[in-house]
Every structure is written in structure tokens, then in C-alpha cells.
Design a protein around this nucleic acid. Structure first.
Length: 955
RNA sequence: GCGGGGGUAGUCAAGCCCGGCCAAAGACGCAGGACUUAGGAUCCUGUCCUUAGUGGUCCGCCGGUUCAAAUCCGGCCCCCCGCACCA
């Protein structure tokens, strides 16, 4: 026995490697190809990430032991700017980053190497492979390792995009993307990889409403274009200096920041002058759609950084407008200071335009009253606005004043009115972020129009149908996802697939100014693992991997001579790769975290369906949930999580593997808890001790308990295989590390000592451990002196269980449990215990009942009649008819497997032979008598015995 | 907003698709005992209430279907997660 887990891990990993168990080469056995969605190289991973990875290795090992040739390749995803960001933060010596790297085991020498993005990627590739995956004993085919930044991978990627283009799935159209003014497009997400601030910002679509004033337009931005029929005035902030902007041949008035933003989204914009908000107050301008002149009033709530800094006023449905309009009407300074006229002020009367459930004519007023808001500037107005907006959107209907839009639901009217105003030239669209976003470089991020953005057209109907249809033939776990993946596929629209800016990745083959983005280059890649091995060992070079090369080896197209001539790759190599592809593909299982359900998995499916023939489409998907930290997520960016090598050293790799496999269903999050991991380690320690004890037993005996153990083990193995049909490792773990362990304990406790039985069972038991805890399984396999490696062992077929043998033990356990129950309840300290087994006529009666039950004719009258026709039963009179009644009722309701089993044994003999054991368990001498001829029965207890439930008497 | 997941005994967590041996696996925790030990021990027993081994009540809440519901149907309440150039 190795003296430590670490020693054991090294020993067996070396042995597997020597035996080349990790190599997967084409042969005549059925194949099984499995991957996990490769992780992004953005730094160290933590113990949570190993959950899904471990599952894949364990499944692969199980498949290997059940007759499959398993291909389990790994790789990493480095596309994007994670590595760029990390490298620059390291070179700036950012304290947090350095501290995080060091905590995870990065040495000063390593740090020196991490100067540029590519060295960061290579460094972490090495960490992932050696410190995580190899350390965990994975039997992955390391020769096939690939990374999305490798030049050969890029060739494959470019080929894939040419295929998408051939299929007509690449389209170009304008796109509004968040972009740094300096660095170009950036990603806005909560982890803030691209940006320094504003990870939760969302892009909002404003409708710009153009109010004519002379030869200018005052331009207001609104999120509620459907409210234009309620416009009664216009708001400008008197303390803001606005700009005049030439926009084509029009002149617009907007805030300076809006002008800057618009320049990124509109053609031909130029600032030509300035104008004070105060100067605009009192103007009469023509509102779009309703073509009425409305006055410009002053309002402090107009923020020059939101929208255009100018706002249309719909007091009926906008709480801010309602409040501010009250202010205007009640403030005498409006006339004296701003020079408004009485008529102007009086002309602004709220118009009721939308009917909403639970609101009166003026929803804005209702919500203000309800919330008790009394002054403009109250911060609660923002909530009020949200409330009205939300309720209006869902329950609102346009009233009759809304012309031809009357009667429409708000949801519908919104789009219709927007469209109408855009086509008549009274409105335009404008995209803006709802909070400030700052790029890592310190410059602001704004929404920029990109005219010629490339998209993959996942909205394509034919593709969606083909993909969705194929999904119905797949094994997708959990079933909830199997059911709703179709919805996800339908919902998928065009997806921007390339980007510009600071970005590592493959050049877009149709236009090298673009780089393929990070989701789009990770869809068809599993098939590339079949080819990468030839690129990695130098058999083929990237420049040889042309379009016709991939067409030939993946799609079996083209003439081998021509392709060989074009690429310089020998024909036999081409043919070998072709055969590999047809042998290993389709992919049998792709496992990835739950975040992939709405992004990676759909595109993975779409791209396969778009490019490959039916017979090469994937067969299985499995989704894993997370290991989380206490209270909050353990996040690799924020640190604080247990580094993987540290945990492996502390608990042992197999303890962690068992923890992942068993702690909860794969389809639920679990909280990382070291105490729980430790308890798995203790269990493994106990199992090791148990196997050592069992393997040292050399005797022979033929007691009933041997048959019991064989039967139980067979039953457990059956459950293991049944569970694994659904790739449910948890049931394998539960049967193996808990149920079988408990049976072993019971066997020893019952005095089982038969070496042959033990060795047969150990062989099953240890082999069942091999998928999840392979190191310990090998060690125990060796301890027992079994031949070869357990990892190469073929799982035994299952033997049918022996119900009689199993029931015999259940009977003994029940009797012991009943006796202790009685002792506990009565608080007796018995001197003598008598067990009365059932009278034989009752056994007969039950036999009759069982026969009737199996032919479906069991009912009270029939059973009673049948019983009474047997003299041995009938002589018991009333007791017999009562038993018949009880049996008929009980047995027609439940399955009778157990009852059948109990008739296979003779209870008296069986319990007599176990009497000594029962006595030792109870600590009192136990006698077994049959109720037929009991010679001592002072309380007449024996009559209560029925088959399967002996009567008990204590004194 | 769109879409999805979930609420089970002190805790975690199976079961639910396929209704009935379900008072409901297992683990952890707790209690008692054995052993006698420096180990994050192990082994037994118990852990809803009641009780000569029985019976009662129970699986978020309310109704329904059924001979029978943790499981099926309808409604309600509460938690959680994903949503695209982030992987």
C-alpha cells in the first residue's frame, strides 16, 4: 500500500501513462468520444471548475471499462482579450492581480515570463493541463491538445467560416455595438473583462422625436414613443448650454454629449453653434405625429448626459412631466423670469391617452399620489416612472384620442407609432447606455454604428428546423434542457460573429480586418481534435491545411490525388485522417456548465447542422451546475477560492472526485464545504481499511450469508449500470461507496468468512470504484492481487439477484429491530426472548393468495373459499377467514415480490441458524420456536405470527 | 421584459418523468452505547408524535383527479439562475 494519497496518485498515473491508456487510436472496438466545453484561459481555475471536468473523465473511464474505445481530448479557449488584459495588468504590476497570481502558486520566475498575451496563454495552458487535469488523473489524449490561438486551429476556423458562407449563412448589416473611443468594440458584462466601470450597463433604444422650430429641430429622446398623443409641451434645461448640430441638411438642437454620441451613430454630423436652454424657453415648436405647436418650458430634470438632454412632455403618463408641469403652473416666476405667457401655460393640459388596469385617466398622477411624492426632484420619481412604464407596457391600451392607433395594446402601438414616425422623417433611432461605461484604457465607451458587421444567420428557418429536429434524436441531460432547447434554438437570432479592436483570435477569411469572435470560433471544434494530433506531431503543417484539405478529410469531398498534390500531404495520411473522422465522429457527449445552455450549446448544434451531414451530428449534451462559495459565488476573478492543487494535496484527488460525483445531482448547485469533502475522504479511508481486511481472509464457509452477499452485489451492480445508462454517476457512487460498503460491513458482522465469495465480490466492488476513484481502485486491485490494471478491466456482467437469499437477511434484521423496539418501549431488561415463527397453515394460505394475485383473481370471497376448501386451513375457523381477508386486502394493493421471496425459505430453520447471531446482537439468549408446536407460550403470542413476521415474546 | 430552474424531516440531498412495499434512500449533525484512542477516528443503536414490535400526522400553501398523491391536474405564495461580441 502506498503511504500517502499523493504517492498513490503519482504511482498509478505513471503506470497508466506507461500503458498508454490515455492514447486513443482508431481500432475495431466501438468508440465513444466525449469532451467538456474547453475553458477560457483567463487565469487560474478553482475547485468548482473541476466538477464538470471530473464527470467527463469518470464517464470516459466507465465507457472504457464497458467495451468502448474512448476518445477524451482537451483544449483551451484563448480567443478574446482576457490574455491581453491580464498581460497588461501584470506589466503594470497591479497589486491585486499579482497577489491573486501568487496565491495560486505563480512564482516570481513565472511572473517574469508573463510579459505578452501569448506567453500568458501558454503559461496557463500548461497550468490547466498539468496542475489540474493530469493531476486529477484524467485519461485524456494529451497528444491532441489544442488551443484556439494555434495557427492550425485558425486554419480549421477559417475553413468553417467559408463553409458557413457557402451555405449562405453569413450576412452583413448595420449593428450598434458598445465601443471604446480609442480601443474599438468592447464587451459589457458584469465581470468587466474589457472595461473598468459600468459592467451592468444596458443598451437602450431611444426614439428621437424631432420638434420643428423654424428651420431647426429640437430633438427629444424617448423610450415611450407610443405616448406622443399625450404631448402638451417640451422641456429644456435652462442651465444647460445645448449645441446646434448640422445633420445632413437639417439642423438639430441637442446636448453636447448627445451630439458626441450621435456622431458615432449618424452620418454627416457637425457641431455648428451653441444655444442656451434658457433661450429656448417660450418657443413654440411643432410636435411630431400630432402636429400641434407646444411651448418649451424650463425643467431641471433634463440631464444633458441622458438621451439628448431635451425631453418631450407627456404629463398623463410620465411622473416627472406631471410634477414639473405643476411647478410651471404654480410658479409666478415663469411669467416674470422666463417670459412665458398665460396662454402658453394654460394650453398645457394633460391628455388621457392610455387606459391601464388599476389606474385612472392620468396614471402618472395616480402613482405620484400613491407614493406620496410632493416635489419635483424627489428621487422616488425614478421608481414611479418605472412602475408606470411597466404597467403601461403590459396592461395598457391606446384610447380613442390616439387616432388610428386607438384600441391597440401599448406593446403593439409602441412599434407601430415608432415605425410611422421614422418613415415620415419625424423620428430616428438612437442607442445609448443607461449608465456610464469606461474602458480599461480610461476612455468612455459609447454605442457605435458598425455598417458592415458580419453575422451568422441563426435565424435561418431551414437551419433552425434541421437543428431542432436533430435535437430530438439526441441524449440531452437534464431532460428539462432536452425539452426547452428547441425554444432556445427558435429564439436565437443573427449573431455578430466577428469584431474589431484589441482582440486575439482567428482572422476572418472573407475580410482580414475582422477577427472571429469568441463564441463563433468554439462551435464545431470537437471534430478538430481528430485532426489536431497530426498537426501537433508535425505530420501536417498549418499551411497545408487548405480548404480542400478540410473538405476532403471532414466532408469526404474531392479527389485524393488532387488534394494530395495541392497540399503536399501524402495520400495515405489523408486517407488515415478521413477514416479517423468517420470513426470518431459524431461526438457522443459534450458536457458544459449551465451558462452554456443559451449560448454555446445552441451555436454548437447550429454549426454542426449547418456544415456536417446527418450521420456526423452530435449525439449527447450534458449540463453541469456549479460549485459555489458560501453565500456568494467563488469567482476566479475575485479570488478567495481554494486553488486546485492545494485542495488535491489536502484531501487527495480521489476524495475530490468522489465529492464531485456524489455530493448532489449534477443538475443542482452545491456549496463548497471542506467539512463535506473531508467526510468523503474519511469514507475512502474506511473503504480502504475494509478491503484490506476482506482481502486478508482466507477461510471457507458456505453459510447463507455468502449467497446473500453475492446476490446483493449483483443487485448493486445492476443499479450501477442502470444509472449509467443515463450517465448518472451519482447513483454509481451511491451504490458503490455507500450501499456496497454497508453490505460488506454486514457480511463481516454476520461472520462471513468465505474467501471465494469475498474475492468475487471484491472484483466487482473495486472495478465499480475505478471510474470515480481510479487511484484508490488500482491500489486496492493490486492489494488483492488481481491481474492487470483495473482501469483496463472489463466490468462483469450482472447476475440475477437471489430474492430468497436477500429476504432471509431482511427477516433477521427485522426481527432484531423489532426486539430492540420492544425493549426500548417497555424499558424491560429481558432474561429470555422467544421468537415464534408462523403456523404452517398461514404459509399455505399465503401461497394460495399469491397464486390468485399473479393470475389477477385475488379478492376476499375467492381467497376465503379457496382457503376453506383446504382442511388444514379450515380447522382454524375464524382466524383463517380473518387472515384471508387481510391478505386479500394487503396483497391486491402492492407488489408481492417480497412475499414470493419469503415463501422460498423456511423461517424456522433460517432463524434457528441465526439464533446465535441474534442473541449476540440483542445481548440475551434467543430461542426460536414454531407456532405449530411451541412448548412455551404463556401469553399466547405465537398466534400473532404471520409469514414474514414472526411473533416475539419477552420476559 | 423573454426564457428557465426550484421549494422534501435539524442541515445537505435522493425520490417526482413511470401514483401504491414512501415515515420517505444516503450523507452530515445530534444523542446514547461499545472500543479505548491522540484520529478532522472506528463500530453499533437511535434521531416527527405516540406505541409490546402499533397507530397517527407529514414532502411551500389551497383546491381537484383517484380505491390510492411527495409523485398527476389547476390556482397561489416565495427563492434562484441565464439572456449574445463574456466564456
Amino acid at each position: 500500500m502506498a503511504s500517502s494519497y499523493r504517492e498513490m496518485e503519482d504511482k498509478w498515473q505513471k503506470r497508466w501513462s506507461e500503458r498508454k491508456l490515455d492514447h486513443a487510436d482508431r481500432n475495431e472496438r466501438p468508440k465513444f468520444m466525449v469532451i467538456f466545453a474547453y475553458p477560457g484561459v483567463t487565469g487560474y481555475l478553482h475547485v468548482g471548475h473541476m466538477r464538470g471536468f471530473t464527470y467527463v473523465d469518470a464517464i470516459g473511464r466507465y465507457k472504457r471499462m464497458t467495451g468502448h474505445n474512448v476518445l477524451f481530448p482537451v483544449g483551451t479557449h484563448a480567443t478574446g482579450n482576457g490574455a491581453i488584459t491580464l498581460a497588461s495588468r501584470i506589466s503594470r504590476k497591479e497589486e491585486g492581480v499579482i497577489e491573486y497570481l501568487k496565491r495560486n502558486g505563480c512564482t516570481d520566475r513565472d511572473l517574469k515570463k508573463l510579459k505578452d498575451p501569448m506567453s500568458v496563454v501558454n503559461f496557463f495552458n500548461d497550468v490547466y493541463v498539468n496542475e489540474y487535469w493530469k493531476r486529477f488523473g484524467f485519461l485524456a489524449d494529451w497528444r491532441r491538445f489544442t488551443c484556439t490561438l494555434y495557427p492550425d486551429y485558425a486554419k480549421f476556423m477559417q475553413w468553417q467560416f467559408m463553409k458557413l458562407n457557402d451555405a449562405g449563412l453569413l450576412i452583413q448589416k448595420p449593428y450598434f455595438a458598445p465601443a471604446c473611443t480609442q480601443c474599438g468594440p468592447v464587451a459589457i458584462d458584469a465581470s468587466e473583462t474589457d472595461i473598468a466601470k459600468g459592467g451592468n450597463a444596458e443598451t437602450q433604444e431611444y426614439t428621437l422625436l424631432k420638434f420643428r422650430y423654424g428651420d431647426m429641430y429640437l430633438v427629444a429622446a424617448t423610450l415611450r414613443p407610443e405616448t406622443v398623443y399625450g404631448q402638451v409641451n417640451f422641456w429644456a434645461n435652462p442651465d444647460v448650454e445645448y449645441v446646434k448640430m448640422r445633420k445632413g441638411n437639417e439642423t438639430w438642437v441637442v446636448s453636447p454629449s448627445a451630439a458626441r454620441k450621435l456622431a458615432y451613430q449618424k452620418d454627416d454630423c457637425e457641431i455648428i453653434g451653441k444655444i442656451n436652454g434658457r433661450d429656448m424657453v417660450g418657443w413654440m415648436c411643432e410636435a411630431p405625429m400630432i402636429h400641434r405647436n407646444v411651448p418649451v418650458f424650463p425643467a431641471g430634470f433634463c440631464d444633458p448626459n441622458v438621451g439628448t438632454g431635451l425631453v418631450t412632455s407627456v404629463p398623463s403618463d410620465a411622473p416627472d412631466d406631471w410634477m414639473s408641469l405643476q411647478d410651471v403652473k404654480n410658479d409666478p416666476r415663469m411669467i416674470s423670469e422666463y417670459g412665458l405667457t398665460r396662454e402658453q401655460i394654460d394650453s398645457a393640459v394633460p391628455i388621457s391617452i392610455i387606459s391601464m388596469e388599476g389606474y385612472g385617466d392620468f396614471p402618472a398622477k395616480d402613482v405620484i399620489v400613491e407614493m406620496g411624492i410632493e416635489r419635483s426632484g424627489d428621487p422616488r420619481l425614478a421608481d414611479a416612472k418605472k412602475q408606470v412604464y411597466k404597467d403601461g407596457y403590459h396592461t395598457g391600451r391606446m384610447k380613442d384620442v390616439c387616432g388610428k392607433f386607438a384600441g391597440l395594446r401599448v406593446e403593439e402601438a409602441k412599434d407601430r407609432m415608432k415605425e410611422e414616425m421614422i418613415s415620415s422623417g419625424e423620428a430616428e433611432l438612437f442607442h445609448d447606455l443607461n449608465e456610464e461605461v469606461i474602458c480599461r484604457c480610461g476612455n468612455p465607451v459609447m454605442i457605435r454604428r458598425v455598417d458592415d458587421q458580419w453575422f451568422i444567420n441563426y435565424a435561418d428557418e431551414g437551419l433552425t428546423r434541421r437543428t431542432s429536429d436533430h435535437c430530438r434524436t439526441m441524449e440531452i441531460n437534464p431532460v428539462e434542457y432536452q425539452n426547452n432547447v428547441h425554444g432556445v434554438l427558435d429564439w436565437f437570432r443573427e449573431r455578430a460573429c466577428v469584431r474589431q479592436g484589441n482582440w486575439l483570435g482567428t482572422k476572418f477569411p472573407l475580410d482580414e480586418r475582422w477577427t472571429i469572435e469568441a463564441i463563433s470560433d468554439s462551435t464545431l471544434y470537437p471534430i478538430y481534435y481528430i485532426i489536431s494530433i497530426y498537426a501537433n506531431d508535425g505530420t501536417i503543417r498549418p499551411e497545408q491545411m487548405t480548404g480542400s484539405f478540410f473538405d476532403h478529410v471532414v466532408l469526404q469531398k474531392g479527389d485524393a490525388d488532387d488534394v494530395s498534390k495541392e497540399t503536399g500531404i501524402p495520400k495515405d495520411i489523408l486517407s488515415k485522417i478521413q477514416k479517423d473522422v468517420l470513426y470518431w465522429y459524431p461526438l457522443d457527449l459534450n458536457l458544459g456548465g449551465k451558462e452554456h445552455m443559451t449560448v454555446h450549446f445552441p451555436t454548437f448544434l447550429f454549426n454542426h447542422a449547418a456544415i456536417l451531414p446527418d450521420e456526423l451530428l452530435p449525439r449527447g449534451i450534458m449540463v453541469n451546475w456549479y460549485v459555489t462559495g458560501k453565500k456568494s459565488k467563488i469567482s476566479k476573478s475575485k479570488g478567495g477560492a481554494q486553488p486546485i492543487p492545494g485542495a488535491a494535496g489536502k484531501f487527495g484527488v480521489d476524495s475530490l472526485r468522489l465529492y464531485y460525483a456524489h455530493v448532489a445531482s449534477l443538475f443542482a448547485d452545491v456549496e463548497w464545504d471542506e467539512g463535506i469533502v473531508m467526510s468523503y475522504r474519511q469514507r475512502l479511508d474506511r473503504i480502504i481499511g475494509m478491503v484490506e481486511e476482506l482481502s486478508s481472509i482466507t477461510g471457507t464457509d458456505n453459510g447463507d450469508i455468502n449467497g446473500w452477499l453475492i446476490s446483493r452485489s449483483g443487485t448493486h451492480m445492476e443499479a450501477v449500470h442502470e444509472g449509467m445508462r443515463k450517465l448518472d454517476l451519482r447513483s454509481l457512487a451511491s451504490e458503490t461507496y455507500f450501499e456496497m460498503f454497508n453490505d460488506m460491513k454486514w457480511y463481516l458482522r454476520r461472520g462471513g468468512r468465505d474467501q471465494r465469495t469475498i474475492r468475487d465480490v471484491l472484483r466487482m466492488w473495486i472495478s465499480a470504484m475505478a471510474p470515480i476513484t481510479p487511484h484508490i481502485a488500482e491500489e486496492l486491485w493490486e492489494t488483492c492481487g488481481f491481474e492487470g490494471l483495473v482501469s483496463e478491466y472489463e466490468f462483469p456482467g450482472t447476475a440475477p439477484g437471489n430474492m430468497g437469499a436477500e429476504f432471509g437477511e431482511t427477516l433477521i434484521r427485522d426481527v432484531i429491530s423489532d426486539i430492540s423496539q420492544i425493549i426500548k418501549v417497555t424499558r424491560m431488561d429481558p432474561k429470555r426472548v422467544i421468537i415464534y415463527t408462523t403456523q404452517s397453515w398461514k404459509v399455505k394460505a399465503m401461497g394460495i393468495a399469491l397464486e390468485l394475485a399473479s393470475s389477477g383473481k385475488l379478492d376476499i370471497p375467492t381467497l376465503t373459499k379457496m382457503c376453506m376448501s383446504d382442511p388444514a386451513i379450515r380447522e382454524n375457523g375464524k382466524a383463517a377467514s380473518e387472515l384471508a381477508k387481510k391478505l386479500a386486502v394487503d396483497m391486491s394493493r402492492t407488489s408481492n415480490e417480497g412475499r414470493k421471496a419469503l415463501l422460498q425459505i423456511n423461517e424456522k430453520d433460517h432463524l434457528s441458524s441465526a439464533a446465535e447471531f441474534i442473541s449476540s446482537e440483542i445481548g440475551v439468549k434467543v430461542e426460536v420456536m414454531s407456532a405449530d408446536d411451541a412448548d412455551y407460550d404463556p401469553q399466547g403470542k405465537s398466534k400473532a405470527a404471520i409469514p414474514g413476521r414472526p411473533a416475539i415474546y419477552l420476559e
